[in-house]
Design a protein around this nucleic acid. Structure first.
Lengths: 294, 294
DNA sequence: TCACCTTTGTACGCTTAGTATAATTGTATT
DNA sequence: AATACAATTATACTAAGCGTACAAAGGTGA
């Protein structure tokens, strides 16, 4: 992904959040990001695709930052879960992202709809897994229900808060509040064996998850491109990480645990540099890849 | 409200729910309801106003049917609350009404935004009161939080259900499920004195509620028009109700308890007749009026 | 320098919201 | 029945937005 293109994406996201998706014209985006119409339609085949790219970017950044949080910490800590959940709200500037989802969801185009549905399912699946991490295996049958309830409470609270008080929501505080409600709910559900949607819906979700996969060649190509892109201005260890990752990828059976750790360090090296976004993108793909060959 | 206009409204609502608001063109509505463009813009000053009228109609019908449910029954029964809540979902065919709200909410126009916000606040205020009815005065400080959580769980569950299984949601079953979750939550909140938004937000909501008010003259005029509209085809008691209501309204201090009871009977008389909708509209206004002079 | 890619500017087609208006139909009153 | 008035229709129009096409200009690497 081009730097310029990324800039356009960020501008568009800001406009969509400020004015709403349909109220933002392509013209607005062109003027605000100072590009021509031709360029825009060179980057994205439509306004919808632009929105799609924004959602994709948000997903990648969220997923990378969530992973970062877990490194070397206990997966069963509620505080960490709370942080991980807030990350999504921070990255997407929650107050207006839900409407964006809705906008795309009801825009007729079945392709876009499928995309959003998939992201939604992945979030559901992820959070469901984390809830089991924290509350233990015995909540597995209730995990899907709990996840939906948790997300519902969270989103609606945020929504109402914005509606009434206009101020920014304290995401961390809210998430902790909701998790405490979750504690009560889970007790109640286990006690009475009370289930509404049930866990079986997660089956086809997990299938959906593994759909997107990257080939070794793609990853090598992108790493190579990134390396050339750095050209000189780099500290030596940065190149070492990249070189190591490429070497390991070229092995017949890359060792996933190595890929994961080194990807983490690789990604860390570029935080707060101009290459952060590109590094994140690559890290995300590497992690996906490591998952698929596990 | 004209019969034809009502027909157009229902058609438009169906289309909006089926295809989404922005994906439904005015042309679609014209063709589907077999009217001309001129007529449409005679009824509504814009597509947005048409949506507005739909929401208004839904509100009126919901509120009337909820009131009906309470007649002669205990306000503290959870089953009745469950029914009252499901009514809103039935009337609005919930699966796609939330997006409609979102659509209007983020459509730039501040007037529309204000309208939706107001309806939202009224729903919040109503449900908050009902929760206190049921769980007792001691939950008052938590009522606002609980209401938001309840609505959030409800809406999100519905949303996900539609997303995953495509089938119709069993509203009643879902509402009961959510109310059971509410039981746990309220216990937890009271035990730990845990509050996020707090009850003070309900103050300016109650103000907002009393904004809309109808004058005696308006009501008399509409009752008179309705009476003429019936012309002959009517059973005698129908006219008697109307006459009584008009007489009572003309009193210096109409007795509210009489207005309320008779309005109820009046409204009942017209259920399942062609005049049901108009009667409901009038009943709703009368109840509003009775509330204001209480 | 040459080849190739990106970007720009602009003109165009198409759809849709909303306006304007003259002609037609329906309806109530006398 | 005749007349007056309101509602409805049909149609043409403006304005705005999305997306396409394409030729000209600019940049970059070999």
């Amino acid at each position: 992904m081009n730097d310029r293109k990324r800039q356009v994406l960020l501008t568009a996201q800001r406009l969509f959040v400020e004015k709403g998706f349909s109220a933002t014209s392509v013209q607005d985006i062109l003027e605000e990001s100072k590009i021509s119409k031709g360029t825009f339609y060179n980057y994205f085949s439509s306004k919808n695709e632009c929105l799609l790219a924004i959602l994709e970017r948000i997903k990648v950044e969220t997923s990378v930052r969530r992973r970062e949080l877990l490194i070397g910490r206990s997966a069963s800590s509620k505080d960490i879960l709370a942080e991980q959940i807030s990350i999504h709200m921070q990255v997407s500037q929650e107050q207006n992202l839900l409407p964006l989802f809705e906008a795309i969801f009801h825009s007729g185009d079945p392709e876009l709809r499928a995309f959003v549905t998939k992201q939604f399912k992945e979030e559901l699946s992820w959070l469901s897994g984390r809830i089991i991490d924290i509350y233990g295996e015995e909540v597995t049958p209730f995990a899907a229900d709990c996840t939906v309830l948790l997300l519902g409470m969270l989103q609606h609270m945020t929504h109402i808060w914005m509606l009434l008080s206009k101020g920014q929501v304290d995401h961390e505080k809210l998430v902790h509040f909701i998790i405490r409600r979750m504690d009560s709910i889970i007790n109640g559900m286990i006690g009475t064996d009370d289930i509404f949607i049930g866990g079986e819906i997660l089956f086809n979700i997990d299938q959906a998850k593994s759909e997107k996969t990257y080939s070794k060649e793609q990853l090598l190509f992108q790493l190579d491109g990134f390396q050339k892109h750095l050209e000189g201005e780099t500290k030596p260890e940065e190149k070492q990480y990249i070189q190591f990752l490429m070497d390991e990828l070229r092995e017949a059976r890359p060792r996933t645990f190595l890929l994961e750790t080194i990807t983490h360090s690789f990604n860390n090296t570029f935080t707060a540099t101009p290459h952060e976004a590109e590094a994140q993108e690559i890290a995300s793909k590497l992690w996906y890849y490591a998952d698929t060959i596990k």
